[in-house]
């Protein structure tokens, strides 16, 4: 399994253009932003004063990065990366060379594993760089960077950060699944990226559609179906981690629907992942490689 993992890893990082824009952008982008901020602090007294008077905390900085990767823009990069990785074999007609060497399922699932590891490493490195780098910027401005790390503080903060990381990772995996499924169906990087993005963004408006359908059908309970979609459940897991309470948008509140427990939402997301990966793998397993 190490060999097959390394093969995929080398393919991904061997495509330097793709790696630069879709993987290295996380740590390098963060370093660049910090560099620009440092430059502003060094060159401008106003900047130094602003940072000195209101210095960011490392907790805020580390949390901020997870919010960025969890946003639609952040997910765009994950979707594009996944589409590239899955569609590359079609694009370069490489499946015909690979499939006689390994079972289809191994090769296909290996892509999810490698992508998962890469995305996780990229996100974690981005968060760590932001946490440490912001300290350097605050130091340059002559401010105090805190709060001081104590066992008690870590006990409070680490679960919150871990929860954010989990949500970002799961969201990235869901987006990867959409891209993989779209690739297997369309064999095209562009089509897969567009379709996966449409689904990812489209999922955000599902509550609105359900609300509208509920009004049309005079059945407001239709909105309860929101609870089964990954988007809501990821938001719910994030809300439990941040505030200790579930995510309850007004339309659910008006129906008297309680937010599910974080564990239940996690289960829903895992089921979604299993279904999406299973569907993509099943289709790929039956597919004729005719080109």
């Amino acid at each position: 399994m190490v060999q097959i993992f390394r093969a995929e890893w080398e393919k991904i990082f061997g495509n330097r253009f793709m790696a630069a824009f879709l993987i290295w952008i996380y740590p390098v982008g963060t370093i660049t932003m910090l560099g620009l901020t440092a430059l502003a602090v060094l060159l401008s007294e106003t900047g130094r004063t602003a940072v000195r008077l209101q210095p960011p905390t490392w907790i805020e900085q580390m949390m901020l990065t997870w919010s960025i990767v969890n946003s639609e823009i952040g997910r765009l990069f994950v979707v594009a990366l996944a589409a590239q990785v899955f569609a590359a074999e079609y694009q370069h007609s490489m499946w015909k060379n690979l499939l006689p060497r390994r079972p289809r399922l191994h090769l296909f699932l290996n892509k999810f594993v490698v992508l998962g590891v890469i995305v996780l490493l990229a996100f974690v490195s981005m968060s760590l760089i932001a946490g440490v780098g912001s300290g350097l910027v605050v130091g340059l401005a002559g401010g105090q960077y805190g709060p001081a790390i104590t066992p008690a503080l870590l006990e409070d903060v680490l679960p919150v950060l871990a929860n954010e990381a989990l949500v970002a990772f799961l969201a990235a995996l869901v987006a990867t699944c959409y891209a993989a499924l779209a690739c297997v169906l369309t064999h095209s990087v562009v089509m897969a990226t567009l379709s996966a993005l449409l689904i990812t963004v489209g999922e955000q408006i599902i509550p609105v559609i359900l609300l509208w359908l509920g009004q049309l059908a005079n059945n407001p309970d239709l909105s309860r179906a929101t609870l089964i979609f990954p988007g809501y459940n990821l938001g719910n897991i994030a809300a439990w981690g941040r505030s200790g309470a579930g995510y309850q948008p007004p339309f659910l509140h008006s129906l008297g629907v309680e937010a599910p427990a974080a564990a239940d939402s996690l289960l829903v997301v895992i089921v979604w992942l299993a279904i999406l990966i299973g569907l993509a793998a099943w289709h790929f397993q039956r597919q004729d490689i005719a080109h």
């Binding site: 097959i4 093969a7 060379n97 690979l98 390994r102």
Partner: peptide
């Protein structure tokens, strides 16, 4: 067919590792 962005040797390495 091969991965155009990899060298000939790297292409063979990737295929060998896949197998």
């Amino acid at each position: 067919t091969c991965y155009p962005y990899l060298t000939g040797r790297k292409n063979l390495e990737v295929l060998a590792r896949s197998g």
